[in-house]
Design a protein around this nucleic acid. Structure first.
Lengths: 152, 152
DNA sequence: TCCAGTCTTTCATATTTATGCAAAATGGCT
DNA sequence: AGCCATTTTGCATAAATATGAAAGACTGGA
């Protein structure tokens, strides 16, 4: 189906771009050969319950819905606590080792969080490599992970 | 100061969540004898990082930012765990007793959570009385508090 | 007190977002 | 296929939100 596919694209765009207005979605989708109007995006956003968040830096950007994020974070926390083995950082990478079999689950949870810091993740059975958007953001992400681990 | 006081009002208005547009804030504040324009509300919302959330029922409403909610919940948990003595319920009231000195802090944290169930709170040095909006909601709130106490 | 710098507000308006309605597309059914 | 019901979309525009610029308020210091 058309709409669903587009909404999948929208989700993916969320994590990889700083999207300030609905027209940004329109252009980014056009770049992927998907033609839509702002009206449709507005409806998609309502459907998906995305929100336009005032960011600390003074701008705005679209982001995943609150509830989903909280649910996902809970799962992420549990998975991390259950399966965590170790982690290491280098450059823009954070490498998390987990118990065998937990890699894919963890990776997809991290994807689902749509962290601003994260460019993408890739993993195997027992490892997740998180690629950040910048060095500074790598630090941020590291802290987030530590917090998830230590935090009640 | 003026701005901060207004933003406190805005926070309180949030929990009585029928707020669909910024003009709603303007009218509600006018009802409390606070005159502002939509422009100022827009800037307040940016300051406070409130978001306009597409609700499941098809409309929109303004809401607290995710991050702040999570931070507050964390503090609330800690305070409860640290200072909790006992609690009792009657009618639409939940009465929480805490160690001396912790009442006001707890009350303001509960206010800050903007629980839908809560009509208002009042407290002294060692007690917080939470007034719920209905009997059913009192039960809900009780469960929330228990969860905060028991929960990891 | 008066001033300069900073912050806050309003007004006016630009920008962005939401939506009524008609047209187009999609999905069964027969 | 052909038809009807339902869903989705675009267009046009209404509605809502954000923001530059000017004016007003506030603050600390001379």
């Amino acid at each position: 189906m058309k709409k669903q596919e587009r909404q999948r694209y929208i989700k993916r765009l969320l994590s990889s771009n700083e999207i300030e207005r609905q027209e940004d979605f329109v252009s980014l989708l056009r770049a992927e050969n998907i033609e839509v109007t702002q009206a449709t995006i507005s409806r998609d956003i309502k459907d998906m319950q995305l929100v336009k968040v005032p960011s600390a830096t003074g701008g705005y950007h679209y982001s995943m819905p609150v509830q989903k994020q909280m649910d996902t974070e809970k799962k992420l926390k549990r998975t991390l606590k259950d399966a965590y083995v170790s982690y290491a950082t280098q450059d823009k990478f954070v490498l998390v080792k987990v118990l065998p079999g937990n890699g894919p689950a963890l990776a997809s949870l991290i994807e689902a969080m749509h962290y601003d810091e994260v460019f993408g993740t890739i993993g195997d059975d027992a490892t997740v490599l998180i690629i950040c958007k910048s060095l500074a953001l790598t630090l941020d992400l590291q802290q987030k992970i530590q917090r998830l681990l230590s935090d009640n």
